[in-house]
């Protein structure tokens, strides 16, 4: 079990995020300046969503040592499920019911993604390394193609008119919960198994650890949080289109995990923040922006291959 200290930090983080939200929104709307406005607030939410994605993928890729390239697919499942639910059930009269509905649809989106994660994980986790990577990439793409051709989900046009319910508080509370849950899993007695599977699968199974069970658990948990992130994304951008979830999105998340240092949660969080803010800062450079971005990725991998922030206790063997 976790120390009560960690639980306390979680509660403080959630309360702080929820209490800060009205204040930040009030400032952004009434005292909008060059230095603080809804654009920056929006980026703050983008960061929270990316933190959830990166930390959950880190459970699969970092802690358990699998290589998934299909995270965007799970995000899509969660996003479309949650968006469809709120679009069908949102109430314009009983406004107090909407936050409950939002929480419920996020949860259901997460569960849907976990279910798909299970369906994808069980057959494909027999594969190793690059084969697993390509199969998860394949599943991610297939999920995207299905959304792209299904009229019910808006097909190529996308799904407009999703209510604007994701705010700073929701985003960061859920990010805090994700970090907490992943930390709890990894640091528990049970969770040592993930690291054992990562370090040496054969030795782990000799010690009575069932690698497949651990891999599937990591995969399903990771998919669940990716689904939550998808739900937040849907209600933040207020619009869903299959092109948001192509394999480049998965690769973006993988880059965050690797840049942060596989298996090191603080590093991965920092990388998620940096990789979300960097393209925004580079906006002023217009057409040079993505060139600089790619050069920075190459440069960082050369200079800090162990991840940007070699903090946290895990040393990674590959």
């Amino acid at each position: 079990m976790m120390h009560s200290g960690a639980k306390r930090s979680l509660i403080i983080a959630i309360v702080a995020a929820v209490l800060l939200t009205p204040l930040l929104e009030w400032i952004a709307h009434t005292h909008s300046t060059k230095y603080f406005n809804t654009y920056y607030l929006g980026i703050g939410i983008d960061i929270a969503i990316n933190v959830i994605l990166a930390v959950s993928l880190n459970l699969i890729n970092g802690h358990t040592g699998q290589f998934s390239l299909g995270h965007a697919g799970f995000m899509a499942v969660g996003g479309y499920t949650a968006a469809k639910l709120t679009l069908a059930l949102q109430s314009h009269t009983l406004l107090w019911i909407n936050p409950i509905l939002f929480g419920g649809s996020l949860l259901l989106g997460g569960l849907m993604a976990a279910l798909v994660g299970f369906a994808v994980g069980v057959p494909s986790l027999r594969l190793r390394g690059d084969y697993l990577a390509i199969v998860t990439l394949g599943f991610g793409e297939i999920i995207r193609v299905v959304f792209q051709t299904t009229e019910f989900f808006g097909a190529a046009t996308g799904l407009p008119g999703i209510p604007n319910w994701t705010n700073f508080g929701w985003g960061w509370s859920l990010a805090a919960i994700t970090v907490f849950v992943v930390a709890c899993i990894v640091n528990s007695t049970y969770g040592r198994g993930f690291i054992a599977v990562h370090d040496d699968e054969v030795a782990a199974s000799a010690m009575g650890i069932n690698p497949v069970r651990y891999k599937v658990t990591a995969f399903v948990t990771g998919a669940f949080f990716a689904g939550i992130a998808g739900g937040l994304f849907a209600h933040h951008k207020r619009f869903l289109s299959p092109t948001s979830f192509d394999f480049m999105k998965s690769i973006d998340i993988v880059v965050m995990v690797i840049l942060g240092g596989m298996g090191r949660t603080p590093g991965v969080i920092a990388a998620a923040v940096i990789l979300t803010v960097m393209p925004e800062v580079l906006r002023g450079f217009a057409e040079y922006r993505m060139i600089i971005y790619s050069l920075l990725i190459i440069g960082l991998m050369m200079l800090r291959p162990q991840g940007l922030f070699a903090i946290g206790k895990r040393t990674v063997k590959t």
Binding site: A28, S32, K34, N37, T38, Y39, Y40, G42, I43, D46, G158, F233, H236, K237, R238, F239, L240, S241, P242, T243, S244, E280, R283
Partner: peptide
Amino acid sequence: AGEPATVVNKLVSR
């Protein structure tokens, strides 16, 4: 997708 929301927010609010 996902970018227009961000950039239009920037154009409008910043």
